[in-house]
Design a binder for these strands. Sequence first.
DNA 1: CCATAAGCGGAGCGGACGCTCCACTTCTTC
DNA 2: GAAGAAGTGGAGCGTCCGCTCCGCTTATGG
Lengths: 222, 222
Amino acid sequence: MDPAPPSASLRADARRNLERILTAAEEVFRDLGPDAGIAEVAQRAGVGQATVIRRFPTKEALWAELLGRRMEALAAEARRQAGVVPTAQALERFMVTLAQRYAADRGFHEGSAGACALDASLDGPRRALVVAAGDLLALAQDAGRIREDVRAEDVFFICAAVNHRFRPGDPGPELWRRYLDLMLDGLRTPRPEPLSAPGPSIDVFHEWLARQRAGGTAPSSR
Amino acid sequence: MDPAPPSASLRADARRNLERILTAAEEVFRDLGPDAGIAEVAQRAGVGQATVIRRFPTKEALWAELLGRRMEALAAEARRQAGVVPTAQALERFMVTLAQRYAADRGFHEGSAGACALDASLDGPRRALVVAAGDLLALAQDAGRIREDVRAEDVFFICAAVNHRFRPGDPGPELWRRYLDLMLDGLRTPRPEPLSAPGPSIDVFHEWLARQRAGGTAPSSR
DNA sequence: CCATAAGCGGAGCGGACGCTCCACTTCTTC
DNA sequence: GAAGAAGTGGAGCGTCCGCTCCGCTTATGG
């Protein structure tokens, strides 16, 4: 019922352990991705596996918690940028930040497409993040800098896609910058004919998520 | 020593079985991707798991064989298009074909980034494929249709990237078309400043592959 | 300082999966 | 059609991994 209960009402030592688990998990998720094992987290936190599972009923719940934190941080960042420099370029700056985040955070990158992304607790943060990006997008579109047939949802697909297949250790993990450049050039180009496929919609995505949760097996991921 | 020996010198029934294994594996690889189990292939082929392993020393060797066939087919397709319609648009047509292939063939998409892609037998086909794409690219660049700072290797990264995260069953598996449109627009846009990151090189990639083979664990790839 | 409840972690269960073993079957050759 | 080689597949081994069980430890409140 409470995947990560308000750490109040926990015994002092348990609260301490929870803190260490989260710190360790953060590191593991970022560097090793959602396929890493519970054992890895437990070992780095200096606790037993059972203690990890006691706080988060499944591995997926743990990753979902971390994923949620990342979404919230990014939404805050987007809102901050909209406040500080509400210019037509703010979206592009945000997209660089976002793509870089995908590049530097394997858990965020792979997890966003993995089983843990199904968790219902992420629906809110995800929606908030899309809204925040949408505000930046509107700014850029009103200024005529970005073509009109782009949606907020596209921003995330694009920033994830330019990181396709790049992990730390891969040859040229910096290539995302190159493909983001190309994408941004494409986004700036006005287009006579509409794009060949309609844009993605978070509502459709959420319906699909709900179907997955009810229906059956999780998406493969990774 | 011989991952898929010339099916001559095989007993008649064994040759028949090999054929059925390849047919079944083709299907499984395409629909389920490289994470599918040997058991799945064996069952669909109507043989025992041991019979699959007897022909291909490891699961990776089987997938590598299929991956190689795909590379060769695509290279042939590229050469065909260069012969039939040697126009500035041939590259774009090929990229649509390639992206579609990634979209329709989960094994090709995930396998290209997975452990089976390490197999040394793929180095030749991979290089041939890049060369064939390079010819189409040169055609388009000579005609001034595609910007000059793009390399043949980019073509594959781009067509794979626009398929990032789309699998049959995902919401909007057609979205690759949308992002490929954007990418193509970006590729056509001449650019005053150079792209932020240098292009990928198959030589560097092959050096990296060799290091992986010698060094240690395979890339995760799920 | 004690009683109690909360928390802990090592051992182990269960299932998945790649791969191997070996007694048995089937093809080939003469 | 017999002998031997070639091929087969079910049973099973080893390993990994998420998760659980349960006897023990430790904080807490009176």
